[in-house]
């Protein structure tokens, strides 16, 4: 077993949905959620579950080989501006390369992110697919 179960489990809600923080003092939004607003340092922040819908600002098709994740190559990594929140970095899935463009509307979807050694758990997290009409 290479992956720690509690390390992942305690953040499961942040892996199963897009949770952002809104600062009730300066109004700025942060992904991932933080206890302290990184902009105005206020602790007066609240967590919001984002609708997970946004737009691709930029994307890259990656062939970077990392041990243990070669099966996921190539993958598309994008900067996504959430409609109700900040920019985040996300992986794009379920799309034909011909659909890929800046400005593409996308939505969060649950996908497998890691598989531990044989006998270990399968880990899930949020990726993004083209917005279903």
């Amino acid at each position: 077993m290479k992956l720690s179960i509690p390390k992942y489990w305690r953040r499961r809600f942040d892996y199963y949905s897009v949770i952002i923080a809104e600062c009730l003092d300066c109004g700025k939004k942060t992904y991932p959620r933080k206890h302290i607003c990184p902009y105005c340092k206020s602790r007066n922040v609240r967590a919001i579950t984002s609708a997970g819908i946004g737009e691709v600002i930029a994307y890259t098709i990656s062939y970077f080989r990392v041990e243990g994740s070669e099966e996921h190559i190539p993958k598309i990594v994008a900067l996504i501006k959430l409609d109700d929140g900040p920019i985040l970095i996300g992986e794009l899935v379920d799309l034909d390369l011909s659909e890929l463009r800046e400005g593409l509307r996308v939505e969060a979807v649950l996908r497998k992110i890691r598989t531990d050694d044989p006998g270990g758990l399968i880990y899930y997290g949020v990726k993004f697919r083209p917005l279903m009409k």
């Binding site: 970077f64 080989r65 890691r114």
Partner: peptide, 30 residues
């Protein structure tokens, strides 16, 4: 290199970026 690459992804926030295997080179490309 694939093993070294794994360690190089650790310069980013593990809980937020590296767990998804996002790498510095992806951000440089963006």
């Amino acid at each position: 290199t694939t093993v070294i690459n794994k360690h190089i992804t650790k310069f980013l926030d593990y809980e937020v970026e590296s767990i998804y295997d996002f790498a510095l080179v992806n951000e440089a490309a963006l």
